[in-house]
Amino acid sequence: MELIGAIIIGAIAGWLGSLIFKGSGLGLLWNIIIGILGGAVGSWLFGVLGVSLGSGWVPAIITGAIGAIVILAIINLLFGVKKR
């Protein structure tokens, strides 16, 4: 059941991150991948900064979306992906 929750949270977080950063979605599979990775990056980043959003689905989605934005920004810097 945790895997399904991680996939759902990852999909929503990745979609929000790509919407905020690029203005369009990347597709369901990439949204899930970026969102799950973004959750890990966001959790690490908030841990380093000493920030806690609490527990539950909404803080997990917010953390994942912020992490997804960081990942998308790094990808954009490394590969020079242009906005459409």
Rank of each mutant, 00 (worst) to 15 (best):
L49A: 14
W15M: 09
I20H: 11
F79P: 12
I12Y: 01
G38R: 01
V48A: 14
L16P: 03
S24I: 12
F46C: 06
L78N: 03
M1W: 12
I9C: 02
G67P: 06
A65Q: 01
S43K: 14
G14C: 06
V48S: 06
A11G: 14
I34F: 12
I7H: 08
A60P: 04
G42K: 11
G23L: 05
M1K: 10
V58N: 05
I33R: 01
G5E: 03
I4F: 13
V81S: 09
G23F: 00
I74P: 09
P59K: 06
V51D: 03
S52D: 15
G27I: 07
A68H: 05
I20G: 07
G54F: 04
S24N: 15
M1N: 08
I74D: 14
N31S: 08
A13P: 00
L53A: 11
I36S: 03
G54L: 07
L53W: 10
W57P: 08
T63A: 11
R84E: 15
G5L: 03
K22T: 13
G27M: 03
L78W: 13
G35I: 00
L29R: 09
W30E: 10
G10W: 12
G23D: 06
G50P: 05
L3T: 14
G54Y: 11
G38Y: 02
L72G: 00
L72R: 12
V51K: 09
V41I: 15
G27D: 07
G5F: 04
W15L: 12
I8K: 02
L26M: 06
L19P: 05
V81N: 09
S43P: 09
L72I: 02
A13S: 14
I9N: 00
I36N: 02
L77G: 14
L19K: 13
A60R: 01
A11R: 05
A73H: 09
S24L: 06
I20Q: 12
